[in-house]
Design a binder for these strands. Structure first.
Lengths: 305, 305
DNA sequence: GATTATCCATAAGCAAACCTGAAGGTTTCC
DNA sequence: GGAAACCTTCAGGTTTGCTTATGGATAATC
């Protein structure tokens, strides 16, 4: 019988690319991974890896093996989840990742709710950008992810993920409060915000991509003077009269800040959804976490200006 | 991640009943099995075994785990089979069991055919009664089984087994050759064979069960004076004028013996079929073995009297 | 084009996991 | 009531797998 731990190494190699990365992800030395894969190769009696420069490449046989392994690992997960879901009390561990604004606005309340209802359920929370979180979810480093989806923006699709909508919120142009100066006060639409400094997230994020797209459609290339993935900082920069930004209502939930808001054409909305691997999507732990989020987060976040 | 080797122990326990049997089947000590299952129990954090007299019983959680495990093991097997099937040459090992008459009549030829066509395929052949063979097949101790099925006799059904018909042969009453004595020579039908000694297989076999049934329908309880699972001995006992027996044509293939044959009412036929676990039924090794058998065994074994 | 960094493979030492055998406690069967 | 079957625990030895160190090959860098 083939060793599943070794098969897993092969699957991780297929997903990550190099032995070194696999080793790091599983907290082992590359040497160990190499030896184990060598052993697997000897067991199946078929070459699995070929040298490709300084890396290795999976043979066709190895890819077949990986396909089966993916199924097997999913099933193993499902088995574990099924057993921990069985008792009268929901137990086990769920690793959750959310992005910043959700973390700040809702997670304290959601976690309190969860520990009250399911004292034996251990929730490990981390804050992570949606793209990274979905990636790590597929790699089984997370169990539940809260991510976002911008309109007309194809979110990266991972196989075997179960997505459920959580809420939507409106995206609007946020300006410093009236009286901060004529450059700001004269702006009445997105098209007029081409000459002022912007605060945005770093390149590579969906948010950055979408906002730049909006600016270009409005006819200008934004000058991104303040670049940080901390959206709290964006709010602070706008409030203090240093920049404009496109903010979602989710970011304002905690502040009720006095920024001036301008509606965008078409009132675009961002979708916030949760994702879990299908194999464990119906486990008690995941269901409990999703319910807690649904109880805490209103289905529509739109706030008054 | 749950350890599949330990899960397997649990699955074997579900199939076999006692730790001791599991240990023997896997060539381990009972102590080891006990420790591993204890470890599994600790890992899932849910009780898996309860004491039931001097044995143990699986909890509901354990049974859920076993269901998943069965799937996982099947998939693992399928993965292994898929990989060994991949090359241009059929390789790997296939453990085959057949019952005696097939073993003697056809397996030498089938094996020769196989080694010629697939030199890298290793076939391990054992002779085993059909009931035992199917049981061992389900327990993954065999890969391919040639078994029999008597008319109106529900063969034990195992889940996850793929059955394919191989051939059929007629069952007839076999008597000593003419001139062996009046008691024999006067018999012209099954109903008249109530007063002579019989040769049969031991109780518990499908053959024994079916033949006794035929005798009772014919109005008598047979006197089984010679009991052996060696059907060659049955033929010898009949030839030498010591007993009667119900023989299939398959048993006569090698002998063309001079026994006297009497047709039974309705010309009943036994079905001979092959069985493999579904998970590996379409692997190259299994297909090769089945084809070899199909080439060697005629689809209808009926011989002239 | 030489240097540096990255990556994989192998060898040797070591720690953890696993298995064995013995001993003990129940339960069942005769 | 005694013997046999069964499971468990404990102490021991063995195997397995991991780590560190070393070397060779390739890609990136200056």
């Amino acid at each position: 019988m083939l060793d599943v731990r070794r098969l897993r190494l092969l699957a991780e190699l297929a997903a990550r690319g190099t032995l070194a990365e696999v080793a790091e992800a599983l907290h082992q030395s590359p040497s160990s991974v190499s030896q184990q894969l060598g052993q697997l190769e000897r067991e199946v009696g078929v070459p699995l890896l070929t040298k490709a420069g300084r890396r290795v490449q999976l043979t066709a046989a190895a890819q077949v093996l990986v396909e089966h392994t993916t199924e097997i690992l999913a099933r193993l997960e499902a088995a574990e989840a099924a057993v921990t879901s069985l008792g009268d009390e929901t137990a086990g561990t769920v690793r959750v990742a959310v992005f910043q604004s959700v973390a700040l606005a809702y997670m304290p309340q959601a976690l309190a709710d969860l520990t009250r209802r399911h004292p034996r359920l251990r929730v490990m929370l981390s804050q992570r950008a949606p793209e990274q979180a979905l990636h790590d979810l597929a790699l089984r480093e997370l169990d539940l992810v809260v991510a976002e989806h911008y309109p007309d923006h194809g979110a990266p699709h991972f196989d075997g993920l179960d997505r459920q909508p959580l809420t939507t919120d409106r995206l609007r142009l946020a300006l410093p409060p009236r009286g901060s100066g004529a450059i700001w006060d004269n702006i009445t639409s997105l098209a007029e915000a081409g000459c002022v400094p912007w605060a945005m997230e770093p390149p590579g994020t969906a948010s950055r991509h979408w906002i730049e797209e909006q600016c270009r459609r409005a006819g200008f290339e934004p000058e991104v003077r303040y670049e940080t993935d901390d959206v709290e900082a964006h709010v602070a920069l706008v409030e203090s009269g240093n920049a404009v930004a496109l903010l979602s209502d989710l970011m304002r939930v905690r502040h009720r800040t006095a920024v001036r808001l301008i509606e965008l054409a078409g009132s675009p909305r961002r979708t916030v959804f949760t994702a879990a691997r299908t194999a464990i999507a119906d486990s008690a732990g995941i269901i409990a976490c999703r319910s807690a989020l649904a109880r805490v987060v209103p289905p529509d976040l739109t706030l008054p200006d």
